[in-house]
Amino acid sequence: MSKLITVSPSPHMHGKDNVKKLMYWVILALLPAFLVSVIFFGIGALIVTAVSIVACVGFEYLIQKYLMKVKPTISDGSAAVTGLLLAFNLPTNIPVWIILIGALVAIGVGKMSFGGLGNNPFNPALVGRVFLLISFPVQMTSWPEPVVSRTQYADAVTGPTPLAIIKEGISDGIPVSELMGQIPGYFDLFIGRMHGSMGEIGALALIIGGIILLARKVITWHIPVSILATIFVFTGILWGANPEANADPIFHILTGGVLLGAIFMATDYATSPMTPKGMWIYGIGIGIITVVIRIWGAYPEGVSFAILIMNAFVPILNKYIKPKRFGEEVQNG
């Protein structure tokens, strides 16, 4: 034989999925929601998304090449996913320079400072978003009017999100039944015709994306289901106790970042637990914290904070929540 044969330990076959493919499936699953925001917010959505993705990928390249001095791995798509998710968490009239700061914080602080892909304890896109929300509260909470602001970017007509309306109203003592008149109907909430961050509005599109991810086995059902179920049950109890002072559970699920968070942000690989049991605890925690912030906290929306707080618990969950080993508990029959 002229060539040398290869010797390596088993297995000698390999599955077809790789990191790149998984990341591109996530991007694909985010596209329906992206289309919804383009339909409702038009030019703003395009600008914000483009700037955010280019900035995230660019910062990752620069940091890897010049600071970490390693071979840049931008082609794996993870920076693009972060950029897309960051854009999804921003209002579509946000100035470009704020997006750049957000991208730098997301990639630089949220991801690269921990060693890059797979080593970050917190979801990078959320780190960027929360940093911006705290630093630039005005710009981060001025939400363009859907449909009418299609052709406008910085000068878009703005208004409050449904969650903010409800929160303000309840604290002013206005009954919920009256407040519901001020917000779009359930159908509009379902398709995404409301004020809000770019990617969080299209409930239907996000669910379609979630189904794509589940079908491709990119994510498992545990995290989204546990988050949604917890929020549904928790707000349902509150609503049942006093329907005039609390919004109903369907409203809570359809508004704000719940679906985006549950399907795309909380399921981020590096920052979610490794075992199904851990995923349940993590999801329930996110659900509870979200509702607590929404009902009793200072902010009308709490999904990002909830996910970041639970991210911090993931190492502990991984350490103490172990899968039930095969043959550990013998229940023969």
Partner: peptide
């Protein structure tokens, strides 16, 4: 095995996707 199936592919960072945990028949990590 033909040559193109003999070599291992390039290794990347663990992205903690938890697939190994979910497919392990002995429920190990």
């Amino acid at each position: 095995f033909p040559e193109n199936e003999s070599k291992r592919e390039e290794v990347q960072n663990c992205i903690r996707c938890a697939r190994c945990v979910s497919i392990c028949p002995m429920a190990l990590e």
